[in-house]
Computed example of a mutant assay.
Amino acid sequence: MEDTLFDLPEPRTPEQAVIAHFQLGGEDFGEPDQRALIFDAERAMTAAVGDAGVGEVDGNEFGGGEAVLYAYGSDADALFRVMEATLRALPFRPAHVVLRHGDAEDAEAVESRVEL
């Protein structure tokens, strides 16, 4: 009798998130120099998060006078620790970060807010 190997899916770790919100000047996409600072910070955090192996910085969104940065990984707290200094160094205020512990579609996911 032969042993049969089954291709069972590996258990999935819930994807947690760090979502940073920054108020920019104006009501649209902010000024070019403001967007440049956000892009520079995003590149720095992408490298730091990758080097630390805690997840990935997934991009940004501009509009309504706000910039939002998204990052995902298996531990929102560890991800935020790597990103925190760069996020706090950005000059735009008001600003806050949402740490989501659990998948976006999980009704029991816990979110906490950190003011910057």
Rank of each mutant, 00 (worst) to 15 (best):
Phe29Arg: 14
Gly53Asn: 07
Ala95Cys: 15
Val97Lys: 01
Arg93Thr: 14
Pro32Gly: 10
Asp103Glu: 15
Pro91Asp: 10
Arg88Met: 00
Tyr72His: 12
Ala107Asp: 15
Phe62Leu: 14
Glu84Ile: 01
Met83Pro: 09
Ala36Met: 11
Asp77Gly: 14
Ala44His: 06
Val57Pro: 01
Asn60Ser: 12
Leu99Lys: 03
Asp58Met: 11
Asp75Tyr: 11
Gly55Arg: 04
Thr46Ala: 13
Glu56Met: 13
Gly53Met: 10
Phe92Cys: 15
Ala52Glu: 05
Ala44Gln: 15
Phe62His: 02
Gly55Asp: 08
Gly59Arg: 02
Gly50Glu: 14
Leu37Asn: 07
Ala107Thr: 14
Thr46Lys: 07
Thr86Met: 05
Gly26Ile: 06
Gly26Asn: 07
Phe92Leu: 15
Gly102Thr: 02
Glu108Val: 01
Thr46Met: 07
Leu99Ser: 04
Arg35Cys: 11
Ile38Val: 14
Asp106Cys: 06
Glu56His: 11
Ala85Met: 02
His101Glu: 09
Leu37Tyr: 00
Glu27Pro: 05
Ala71Met: 05
Asp33Lys: 11
Glu84Ser: 13
Ala67His: 04
Glu84Met: 01
Asp75Cys: 11
Phe29Ser: 12
Val68Ile: 15
Gly64Asp: 14
Asp40Ile: 15
Asp75His: 15
Phe80Trp: 13
Glu108Pro: 00
Phe92Gly: 14
His101Gly: 00
Arg88Gly: 00
Glu61Ala: 08
Val68Phe: 05
Ala104Gln: 08
Asn60Lys: 06
Tyr72Trp: 11
Arg81Thr: 15
Glu61Leu: 09
Asp51Leu: 10
Ala47Thr: 15
Ala67Asp: 02
Ala48His: 02
Asn60Glu: 12
Arg93His: 11
Phe29Pro: 00
